[in-house]
Computed example of a mutant assay.
Amino acid sequence: MGKNNKKELSASLNKELIGILKSRFEKNMSRHKGIDWKDVQSRLENNPGKLWSLNEMEITGGEPDVVDVDKKTGEYIFYDCAAESPKERRSICYDHEALEKRKEHKPTNSAINMASEMGIEILNEEQYRALQKLGSFDTKTSSWILTTPEVRKLGGALFCDRRYNTIFLYHNGADSYYAARGFRGSLRV
Rank of each mutant, 00 (worst) to 15 (best):
L99E: 10
P86E: 09
S143H: 01
E117V: 08
R102D: 03
R89T: 15
E88G: 13
T139S: 11
R129H: 12
A115F: 09
A98F: 10
V66L: 00
K106C: 07
I122R: 07
I112M: 13
D95T: 11
I112F: 04
S142P: 15
D70F: 06
E84Q: 09
V69L: 01
K106G: 05
K103D: 14
S110R: 10
E75M: 02
D138T: 11
E125Q: 12
F137S: 05
E125K: 11
K101E: 15
P64F: 07
A82C: 01
S142Q: 04
Q132P: 03
V66R: 00
I122V: 15
H105T: 14
I92D: 07
S85Q: 06
P64N: 08
T108V: 15
I92R: 13
D70Q: 02
V66W: 03
D80W: 06
L134Y: 07
N124Y: 10
R89D: 10
E117S: 12
T141M: 02
K101C: 07
C93K: 08
E88Q: 14
I145G: 01
M114V: 15
K103L: 14
D95Q: 15
S142W: 05
G74R: 04
S85N: 00
S91I: 00
Q127M: 11
H105F: 15
R129C: 12
Q132A: 10
P86V: 04
P64W: 06
S143I: 01
E75C: 04
E84Y: 01
K72M: 08
E126L: 12
E63R: 10
M118C: 14
V66F: 03
T73Q: 14
I122S: 09
E63S: 06
E125F: 14
S110F: 10
Y94I: 13
S116T: 13
G119F: 11
K103C: 06
S142T: 03
I145T: 02
I112K: 03
N124W: 01
G62I: 09
I92S: 10
S110H: 11
V66C: 02
Y76K: 08
T73L: 01
A98E: 11
T139L: 13
F78L: 04
E104L: 08
A82T: 05
S142F: 00
N124P: 09
S136W: 04
K72G: 01
A111I: 08
T108F: 14
Y128E: 05
